[in-house]
Amino acid sequence: MERLFDSFANTVARWTGSPAAFLVCVIVVVAWAVAGPFFGFSETWQLVINTGTTIVTFLMVFLIQNTQNRDSVALQTKLDELIRTSDAEDDFIGIEKLTDKELIALHARCEAAAKQSQATLAKARAERRRRGHDDINGDRAG
């Protein structure tokens, strides 16, 4: 059942995100607007579009959320595998499960490390310039 729903959700999400689906919606809205004078712009006429859009929106929220959840898990799994097989710190595996406070602390740690790396690079560039090396292309200046 779950695989069937996943397949259905993916298909619907892909189709509803297409230009053809948008065109169908525009046609429906234009047809509804054109029908207004024939129905005297009655409450029933308004109720048709309100009810239709509410039902479609309500159902689409669940389909889109299902698709987004799966995409998010797949992306996190790929990132975790890249982290696991690289020289990156294993502390980053599964950080999507941390609290906001823990994520902020980890982000601050990364920013501090980045600033230290930038400072080290700046020192290395200054030293290369001091020794007469071309900083831009890595070529010797003389």
Rank of each mutant, 00 (worst) to 15 (best):
F5R: 10
I64E: 10
W45Y: 06
E96Q: 09
I136L: 11
C25R: 09
T57L: 15
A141I: 06
E111G: 09
W15Y: 13
S72A: 09
M1H: 07
V61I: 15
Q116D: 14
D71S: 10
D71M: 13
V29C: 06
F41E: 06
A13T: 10
V24G: 04
I93L: 01
D80I: 02
A88I: 10
T51I: 14
W32C: 00
F92W: 08
T11Y: 08
L82Y: 13
I55H: 03
G132Y: 01
A21Y: 04
I83K: 03
A113P: 04
D100C: 05
A105I: 00
L79M: 11
D87G: 15
P19E: 05
S18C: 01
F5V: 13
E43G: 15
A35L: 11
K123M: 10
M60Y: 12
I93V: 04
I49E: 09
N50P: 03
R14I: 11
T51V: 15
W15V: 12
S117E: 10
A124W: 02
G138P: 00
A114S: 07
S86A: 00
A122I: 03
F5Y: 15
L75Q: 09
T53Q: 08
N10K: 13
V73P: 02
Q68P: 04
V28W: 07
T54G: 15
T53V: 11
Q118A: 13
D100P: 06
T77Q: 08
S117R: 15
A9R: 03
A74R: 08
Q46N: 08
R130I: 00
F8N: 08
D91V: 09
